[in-house]
Amino acid sequence: MLTVEGLVGGYGAADEVVKGVGLTVAPGEILTVIGPNGAGKSTALKLVSGLLRCKAGSVRLGESDLSSLDPQGRAREGLVFVPQERNVFGALTIAENLDIGAYLEPARSHERARDVYARFPLLAERRGKAAGALSGGQRQTLAMAIALMASPRVLLLDEPTAALAPKPAAEIFKAIRGLADEGIAILMVEQNALAALAMSDRALVMVDGRVAMDGEAQAMRQDPEVRRAFLGGRA
């Protein structure tokens, strides 16, 4: 269980983009964070991942307090962040990208890679090609595959379908749902809110650095206020 309490922080010492966010994500659960631009969604994710330093608050994974760890340390504990853009190593081949992700158990990297290739056959077909030559959807798939090589307990996904056409976006969502069904906890920030809520278990609305609403994703999807304010629909 990922437990975040009272998270405060931003990009500078005096910066408070996120002003006290708390959330929990259970194994096998998808929690999607939605909200207007500038609400602090991606910043919150970076604070959880350790890429940004928290001014206050705590991040715990099970019984372990990860608050004082850097991104590498958190990744080694099973909290793996997948950035929105520039999330693969373009000059390396797909196989090399996957090897970079396998650090917890290098001896099992081949076995892990085989599992990942079985899950994403397209990556297996192109494993000798440079990652920089992949399309947007394929890159996103590879980014998740790199994260999977580390046997994560929690995946932090920053807008995994950003700039993708509807079909590859749907494939990415399907893959994410599949990962959650295998027991991985997923905390996701997503602009494509309607589609994200459709495959999520719970949702959280952030406004101005704070949690404005929290609840079941399907209920939130039907909520007239949420639809009007954040989903582009009518009440």
Partner: peptide
């Protein structure tokens, strides 16, 4: 290629 991605990859 990208040291941020390398860092989040552990």
């Amino acid at each position: 290629d990208d040291q941020v991605v390398a860092a989040v990859a552990g």
